[in-house]
Structures are given as structure tokens and as C-alpha cells.
Nucleic acid binder design. Structure first.
Lengths: 243, 243
DNA sequence: CGGAGTGTTAAA
DNA sequence: TTTAACACTCCG
């Protein structure tokens, strides 16, 4: 159960009437008040709780990208259906200062006209919000049963670079960089002081919001040993099962 | 008020609490007993009262054929929508003795086969329940505000023919005959004694459940005079309004 | 007057 | 057609 302490969830089956057999779900607050719908719950908890991912009926936190479907008439589930274009998952471009994604050149029919952007900069990178990864906040990975996969902790030497960064923010900026970058992901090169003074200038928007991490030979050796141990454990288990 | 004599209706407004401002309605029987709900009322009145159309809160008898709708977004109400197929309004065929609506002939591929019903009876009338109009009992006409239109009285010489016929039954059987019959509506020709002895045989199912009424010249004259008087009254009223 | 239990309805 | 959300009834 993912319910906060003191809360209770109840299921009541309707016994009679036109709606007999249906179940009503409600929650009981620590004070004993019954809560009978999600909007009511939101009203009680206030603005600071995000119930977007909370499924009132099941009482679980659910991150579903696809809609639930009750058809499934023999045919296997069509994953292409019902997938929403979620703005949070689109790599965002800069939202201020210009409505154009690229520098603009008036196109003429004369022979010597070429777009200036191409002339001046070679292949143009799309502009980026400096901290666009903040938009990923609140999104979680989940398995096929929609159970949220727990998040990771960061190693000590991994230090966030930028204002107001939680572990979640940092992990997400690393994941995003690994997913998006074509080159190596190495973290921020500039000093912490410079970045905190003016992130808009000194942040490297191609790199995640962590300071460059120096990986020593010792680090590599320790990690190798961890993997060795894990492998041995698995091997032992497998062979004990065979007997 | 459509309350039976001696009954009283009261409204109490709640003064405090979460439900302040709401009203509770109850009725007081001639004996002084308070009745607080429709089920309780039904228990007191017994089986012989049909409270389906009684609205406990308002104290009025309401026959709503269409559902109340709260939309009405600018567009005028679509009367074709929400009209239910009410079994009571369908002309019923005989419900017992046979599941077939028409006599049955096994169809063969040989050349000389013809359905026997056609051979024997010419165009077949659909069988009818003898007193199917009884199904109309309890249905009332109402105006657009769902106020029931009061029923009529019968002239003296109009006599019901059949067992246990109320004025309502008779009026409805006449209306139904006027609505359905292609020929003249004249009433039952058989004697009362014969019909009461065996309605299943002696009733004319094409005709309403009243004895044939002889309309004399006097009757016609009287009716003409009534119409004259009514017209004159209307004329007087109109001309007095013009001044 | 409260509240459990059902009805009702707009929206999915 | 189903259902989330809420309105309402009925009885303690």
C-alpha cells in the first residue's frame, strides 16, 4: 500500500437497486472523514499534492501512457492506439524570445540567394532551454503492471551543478543526456561558482547537470569486483537449483 | 393539491450543520401520523396504491415520459431523442396459447403448396387480447409542464360492457378505437348478458367496451345548442376585450 | 441533522 | 455503454 500513515481504503459493494453489484471505493482520513472521490481528495490535500498519477479506484500510483482498453477482442493489444502526444516528453525548444526555430531569411527567386543561417554557422543546432530536463520532474518509469520502479541513489562524488537540483532532477538529466547525445556524456566543465552565478551563459546545455566526475582506476576496480560477486552468487544459485 | 382529504403536507428547513438550508418534507395522515419517506408512505397505503408517478418531495403526481435534461445548450430540445419505446403503448397481440402470430404451414418446395391461412381466411387480422385496453390503465395525458390533464365524465347513456370497467377504462377503450379503427366506432352490438357470460366469445374486439348508443335527433339538437352558446360567449368576450 | 447507500448525469 | 462524481433519499 502506498497510502500515507493513518489513512484507510474501503470497498463497498452495492447490495440492491439498479446499481447492485457495483463497488464504491472510499478513503478514511486519519481524522475519520470519508473521502468519496478524487476531486474531493484533492480538495482535502490541497494544492501541494499532485494526484495526476493517483488512481482513486485502485488506490495505486499509476503512470500509464496508454489508455486502458476493455475490448481486446481476441486481437492482441494495439499499442499504437491511444498513445497520447504528451508535451512533457517532447524535447522542448526555447519558448521565449522568438517564435522561430531557426534564423530567418527572406526567400527570393534570384540566383544568388542562400539562407544566411547556413552560410554563417554551418549545421545549426536547435536552441534549447537551459534546464529543460526540469520538465521531466514527476515522470517515473513503471513496469507492465504499472507498478512504479523505485528510483536510484547517487554516488557521493556525483555533484549536481545548477540551482535547486534534487536527486531526481540530476538522474533525469543524466538519462536524458545518455538518450539524446551523440557524443560522450561527461558533465559540466565550468566551475560551480561560475555556473551558479549565471547558468544561462556558463552551463553546457549538451551535458547533464553534474560536475565532471573523475573516475580513478580504484573506482573501476571496485565496480569490477561488485560485478564478479554478483555473478558468482547467481552461478551458485543456478547450480543449486539444478540439483 | 391532489392530496386525499385529511392529509397534510409540511416542509421543514434545516437550520444548521452541513445540510443547512435543505428542506425535509413529510406528510401527516388523518390520524396524525407523520410520514417521512415514500417507502413508508407505500407501506401505510398498501399494495392498492400505485405511487410510481407520485413525487414525494413536491407532493405532485408527475408523468414524465422524457427524461429531464439540464443541457439545452442554445439548441432547441430534440423531441426525437430520449423517446422510449414503451411496451404499454404497443398494440398487444395475444400473449398466450401460441408463440406464432399467424397460423403456420410447413413450407414445401412442391408446386401446389400455399399457406393455408391465406387459402382459408383471406387477409388475416392480427389476433388481439379481448381487453387489451386495460393495459392503458394509469396512463394519463399531461401538458408540457407535466401537469396531468383532468379526465372526462361519461354521459349517462354511455354504458360499459364487460367485467370491472371503470370510467377510465371505458374512455380509454373509446379513444383507442377512434385512434385505431378504420371503420366506424359504434360500440358493442351483443347484449350485456351474453357478453358478461363469455366476453371471450361475445365481445367485438374491434369496438370499444360500451353498449351501442342510440343518438336521437334531440341529442344532436342539444349538442348544437351547447356549441352555439359557447360560441356566443367567446364572441362576447372577444368584442369586450377590443373596447 | 448526519451519513450510508443509491440514484442520476455528464463525459469518457 | 460505462463510469466518475456528486445529488438525493431515508432512517437513525
Amino acid at each position: 500500500m502506498a497510502l500515507p500513515a493513518g489513512w484507510k481504503r474501503e470497498e463497498i459493494v452495492r447490495q440492491s437497486g439498479l446499481s447492485a453489484g457495483k463497488t464504491d471505493v472510499y478513503y478514511v482520513t486519519p481524522e475519520g472523514k470519508k473521502v468519496r472521490s478524487k476531486p474531493q481528495l484533492a480538495r482535502i490535500l490541497g494544492e501541494s499534492f499532485d494526484l495526476t498519477a493517483f488512481d482513486f479506484r485502485t488506490g495505486r500510483t499509476v503512470y500509464s501512457a496508454c489508455r486502458k482498453s476493455k475490448r481486446q477482442k481476441g486481437t492482441s493489444y494495439d499499442f499504437a492506439r491511444g498513445v497520447r502526444h504528451d508535451a512533457s516528453l517532447v524535447l522542448p525548444i526555447r519558448q521565449t524570445a522568438s517564435i522561430f526555430k531557426q534564423p530567418v531569411t527572406v526567400k527570393r527567386n534570384g540566383p544568388e540567394s542562400k539562407p544566411r543561417a547556413e552560410l554563417r554557422h554551418g549545421v545549426q543546432d536547435q536552441p534549447k532551454q537551459v534546464f529543460w530536463e526540469k520538465r521531466l520532474q514527476g515522470l517515473r518509469a513503471c513496469d507492465s503492471s504499472e507498478e512504479v520502479i523505485p528510483t536510484m541513489d547517487l554516488p557521493r562524488q556525483m555533484q549536481g551543478m545548477g540551482p535547486d537540483l534534487s536527486t531526481e532532477n540530476i538522474l533525469q538529466s543524466i538519462s536524458a543526456a545518455l538518450h539524446v547525445n551523440t557524443g560522450p556524456v561527461v558533465g559540466q566543465g565550468a566551475g560551480k561558482h561560475a555556473i551558479m552565478k549565471n547558468p544561462g551563459i556558463n552551463m553546457d546545455t549538451q551535458q547533464p547537470h553534474v560536475h565532471q566526475v573523475v573516475v580513478s582506476n580504484d573506482d573501476i576496480h571496485r565496480q569490477e569486483q561488485k560485478v564478479q560477486i554478483a555473478r558468482r552468487k547467481l552461478q551458485d544459485l543456478m547450480s543449486s537449483l539444478e540439483k
